[in-house]
C-alpha cells in the first residue's frame, strides 16, 4: 500500500474538478479580502498619524486587538458567534471579512510606517502652500509613501493567501477544505497534500518573487511576518 502509488495520483487527476473548485474559492476569497484589507489599512493607517487623539486611539485599539488574537478565533467568532446577534453571513463573506479585518491591521501598520518615512517637514511645507490636512495627505504624503509600502504590501497579499486556509475550519469550500475532505474520504493523503501545496505555491511564489524584486529595486525594507 504505497501512499504515493500511481493509481492514487490517477484518482486525484480524475477528481481534479474538486481541487480546482477549491482553488477558485481560495482565489475569490483572497482577492475580495485583499481589497477590504487595503481599504481598512489605508483608512486606519492615515488615522494613526492624525493630529487628533480619537482616530489615533481607534487605530491602536484596532491594530493591537487584531494583531494579538488568533485569526482562527476571529473567524470562528464571526461564523458561530454572530448568528446569535442575528447576523448570519454566508460563509464566503465570513472568510472575506475575517481575513480582510485581520490583514487590514497589518496593512494599517505598513501605511503608518510609509507615511512616517516621509519627512514631516513636507507636511509643514504643504500647509504653507495652502493645502489642508487631507489635501496634503492625498497629494503630497501618500504618493511618496506608496513607494515605501509596496514591498510589504505584496508581502501582506502573500500572507493573506496562506491564511485563507482558515476557511477550511468553517467548511468554507476553499482549496484546503476540499483537500482535507477528499483525502479523508479516499485516504490518498500523500498526493492530495502535495498537489494542494503546489497549488498554493503557484499563487504565492510569484508574490514572493515580486516582493523581493521590489525590495531590491526600492533598496529598503525587510520582509515582515503575519
Amino acid at each position: 500500500m504505497n501512499p504515493l502509488a500511481w493509481w492514487r495520483w490517477q484518482a486525484l487527476f480524475e477528481n481534479r474538478a474538486i481541487f480546482l473548485q477549491g482553488l477558485g474559492q481560495t482565489v475569490l476569497a483572497s482577492a475580495l479580502a485583499l481589497g477590504l484589507a487595503l481599504v481598512l489599512g489605508a483608512v486606519f493607517g492615515v488615522m494613526a498619524v492624525s493630529p487628533w487623539r480619537l482616530p489615533r486611539w481607534l487605530n491602536r485599539a484596532y491594530v493591537e486587538f487584531t494583531q494579538n488574537t488568533p485569526l482562527v478565533v476571529q473567524v470562528l467568532f464571526l461564523y458561530l458567534g454572530l448568528p446569535y446577534a442575528g447576523i448570519m453571513m454566508p460563509v464566503l463573506w465570513v472568510g472575506v471579512l475575517g481575513l480582510g479585518i485581520y490583514h487590514g491591521a497589518y496593512v494599517a501598520e505598513v501605511v503608518r510606517a510609509g507615511i512616517n518615512s516621509v519627512h514631516r517637514g513636507q507636511l509643514e511645507a504643504a500647509y504653507s502652500q495652502g493645502f489642508n490636512y487631507f489635501g496634503a495627505m492625498r497629494h503630497i504624503i501618500l504618493p511618496q509613501a506608496a513607494r515605501v509600502v509596496l514591498p510589504p504590501l505584496t508581502n501582506q497579499a502573500l500572507a493573506l493567501i496562506k491564511n485563507s486556509a482558515v476557511l477550511a475550519m468553517i467548511a468554507g469550500g476553499d482549496l484546503m477544505y476540499y483537500t482535507d475532505s477528499w483525502s479523508s474520504d479516499t485516504l490518498h493523503y500523500g498526493p492530495a497534500y502535495i498537489v494542494a501545496g503546489l497549488l498554493y505555491l503557484v499563487l504565492t511564489l510569484p508574490l514572493a518573487w515580486l516582493t523581493t524584486n521590489l525590495e531590491v529595486r526600492l533598496g529598503r525594507g525587510q520582509r515582515g511576518v503575519a
Partner: peptide, 11 residues
C-alpha cells in the same frame, strides 16, 4: 463540538 455549535447557530 463545532458541529453542535454550527447546529445551534443555524449554520
Amino acid at each position: 463540538p463545532e458541529i453542535k455549535a454550527a447546529l445551534d447557530a443555524g449554520r
